[in-house]
Deep mutational scan, measured.
Amino acid sequence: VTTYKLVINGKTLKGETTTKAVDAETSEKAFKQYANDNGVDGVWTYDDATKTFTVTEMV
């Protein structure tokens, strides 16, 4: 189990959250659901070296 981080650069929501998951794909699903639940829709990137997802909304 690995800890993954999500950085949110939204128009109205900014911040970070973490989750523990067995792999990046599992954490990505959880993070995308979290973003969707909070009305964040944007461009996703992933940095495997830091286990960090970033979602950026276009303004």
Rank of each mutant, 00 (worst) to 15 (best):
T50F: 04
F53S: 00
G10D: 03
T45L: 06
E16L: 10
K29R: 13
V55K: 01
T56K: 05
F31H: 00
A30V: 15
N36W: 14
V59F: 12
V22C: 12
T26P: 01
Q33S: 08
K29G: 05
K5A: 04
Q33R: 11
G42Y: 03
G10N: 05
N36A: 15
E28K: 12
A35P: 01
E16H: 10
T18V: 09
N9L: 14
V59R: 10
Y4N: 02
K51L: 09
Y34V: 04
E57Q: 09
K51V: 03
G15N: 08
A30C: 14
T17I: 15
G10C: 14
A49C: 09
N36M: 15
G42H: 01
T50D: 04
A21C: 09
K11Y: 11
V55E: 00
K11W: 10
A35G: 02
V7S: 04
Y34K: 02
G10R: 04
A21L: 03
K32L: 07
G42D: 01
N9F: 13
T26S: 11
V43Y: 11
V59H: 12
S27N: 01
T3E: 13
T19P: 02
V1H: 10
V55F: 03
I8Y: 06
T26A: 13
G15T: 14
V55Q: 00
T17W: 15
V7G: 00
A30P: 01
K51Y: 09
T2E: 11
K14N: 08
N38Y: 12
K14A: 07
T19S: 07
D41G: 08
W44N: 00
V22K: 13
T56V: 07
T52G: 00
G15H: 13
E16G: 09
A49N: 10
I8Q: 00
T56A: 04
I8G: 00
V55R: 01
G39I: 03
V55L: 11
K14I: 09
T12M: 10
F53Q: 00
E25R: 12
A35H: 02
K11A: 11
T12Q: 10
D41W: 13
T19A: 09
A35I: 08
T56Q: 06
E57D: 08
G10M: 14
L13Q: 08
E28T: 04
D37E: 13
F31K: 00
T26K: 06
Y4I: 03
Q33E: 09
L6G: 02
S27Q: 04
T45M: 08
K32T: 04
V59T: 13
